[in-house]
Design a protein around this nucleic acid. Structure first.
Lengths: 195, 195, 195, 195
DNA sequence: TATGAATGAGGGTTCATTCAT
DNA sequence: TATGAATGAACCCTCATTCAT
């Protein structure tokens, strides 16, 4: 593993554990077994490390999400696939997810803007999926943006509680998410009618 | 408004806007129109201000949540009431919600523990509600903890997108949340069956 | 006991225990059961408290020392009396002795000068006693100033080790001091001759 | 001279002149011609500078004292050698001696303990010398601890008055100390007997 | 490539003291 | 007489970053 990657790996762990501001460059350098100026050789600033972690993590998922969105299955299946993807992707990268959620404000203003733009892409893609569902008459008459944010809340919140090595594996959790999001937490009752 | 409350109000805004670590006590004092030692006259440390904001905000909601939990209505109605409560409570206190979600690690270790304990109370209360639903045979066979975390993800995530003064008012959003969480985002389809 | 005396008593203990600079006026006021401005009502400054403790303690002993110096006994007996006096005086006021030795530099420049002047009086008085001994041919040909400082070193150093409630009482220690100072720590040996 | 040594030298003078608490790190850095963080590059804290000064000074004398204690001369000569050593050692390092006596309480609790332990070593070594003298029947029946503290009072007190560049040189003072401590300040008188 | 040394800026906190009431 | 409130000044220390070598 290159020294550059070591720095990224160490910084990811530290930023997730203690937060960006409470992590000193000295600590990063120490744990990466480098001198501080040695670290600055690979990154022009501490903030650039954070940026690379965040952008890199988002980009990683982008292609696979696009694959799902452009795949030739019906929208409901796509939604289920997105659920599974997010849970698995996030479960395997808890530190990155934590940073993504917690450290947006630690970025420089320029990077913050780019970050926001990138997030919007994800929301828009999901909204388009809901539009497709709506066109098919499958969706309740709910603002697709709101649905997207409900969805993201559900999957992102895993950062605060989900242990992928616990009793519930990522695959199972993915199925639970899609079930609850699509059909709700409650059983269909006899005589129950859509409002 | 007392000086003490002014400090809390100012600090809440600053912590939510820029983050705890990026907010200096000088800035807080300035905006509260006090000298720095004047601020320390009311709070023993910057961290105690944060703690008071967080704990205070959680405690504020506690009584009203308990009212809902102990009220004499059926569990589904309780769940709907909880949805409405959270959306309205959080919508009216976006800064506090942002701090609650983002600044847990900025607390001292002692306060972190107390904070975690307090959060657990909320999760446990919601889990008990799900247990009641399960006893009534109303709930899908899903781990009530997972349901609780899905629910919290949905409502807490509002901090990142929801503008209560926008097109969708808190009451409407509350109804959307309970509808989606209880019955899902998709219309019931003819012949549709729970898996 | 008047509040003024309470302040002096509390401050004496704190200054001796932790040092003048490490004792805050708030701490003094707290332990004297007063508000801080209440304390400043009795003393114009923290430094004045220290000064009063130091000067007060020195003056206390002054009259009794003068009594010894002007008493109608031979010089050797005077020296023994001085030994006993110092040990007993210091043993009964360890905190004051500690402050006297340790906190001279904490005084204001004016008070430092007065303090030095006062100390000089003690040295001069002792030197006069040695002059008397020298005139009687009793003293070794040693600079009386040096003898005075040896003497003061011996008695003042008690602050660092002597516990008057231990095995060796102040009276016994006084006798040891005069014996060692006057005739030395070693036994006279047969055939031993004065150099 | 290395920057590190410069810092130690400057700090020693300042601590002795004005006291540890009244010496700011900024002042030390200024006089050592460094920025404040530059100073912290060499020492982790102000207190560590103090500790290094104190421990360093004590350790410096240790070897030479041990040489004396283990040398092959009779105990009385050893005592005289110790006198001479202390006077010369202290005369050449007045600032260090002043700090040793005055700033024990400025150390952290851990360092205070180590400091006390180290001091005990010196007292114990001197006590062993007195034990040897007692075994040879040379010593008056006085607790050797008390003798040790009398001795240390005599030599340590020099910090408050002795100017090695004055009329009385260190060698002469060393002889005076041993003469007074061993045989007393007064001439032996005809027919005089030890009490 | 690599690093010991250095720093300007700023961090949170404490201090003795004063003042309005 | 008594005190809650307030402050200017200074405290020790840490930071990300740079530079000389």
């Amino acid at each position: 593993m290159s020294q550059r990657d070591t720095i990224l790996r160490v910084a990811t762990r530290l930023f997730a554990d203690k937060g960006f501001e409470r992590t000193s460059v000295r600590k990063i350098a120490e744990e990466a077994d480098l001198s501080v100026p040695g670290m600055f050789h690979y990154f022009p600033s501490k903030e650039e490390i954070l940026n690379e972690i965040m952008i890199g993590f988002m980009d990683e998922g982008y292609t696979r999400l696009m694959d799902i969105y452009t795949s030739d299955v019906d929208p409901v299946e796509k939604l289920e696939a997105v659920c599974t993807f997010y849970v698995e992707h996030y479960a395997g990268h808890k530190d990155q997810l934590t940073i993504l959620i917690s450290e947006g404000k630690s970025l420089s203003l320029e990077h913050q803007q780019a970050f926001i733009d990138k997030k919007r892409v994800y929301v828009e893609a999901l909204k388009r999926l809901f539009d497709d569902l709506a066109k098919g008459g499958l969706l309740k008459p709910i603002d697709p943006s709101v649905l997207a944010f409900i969805f993201f809340g559900m999957v992102h919140w895993t950062y605060s509680w989900y242990n992928p090595r616990g009793e519930i594996g990522p695959e199972v959790l993915g199925k639970i998410f899609s079930e609850v999001f699509i059909r709700g937490a409650l059983k269909d009752q006899e005589g129950d009618k859509p409002r």
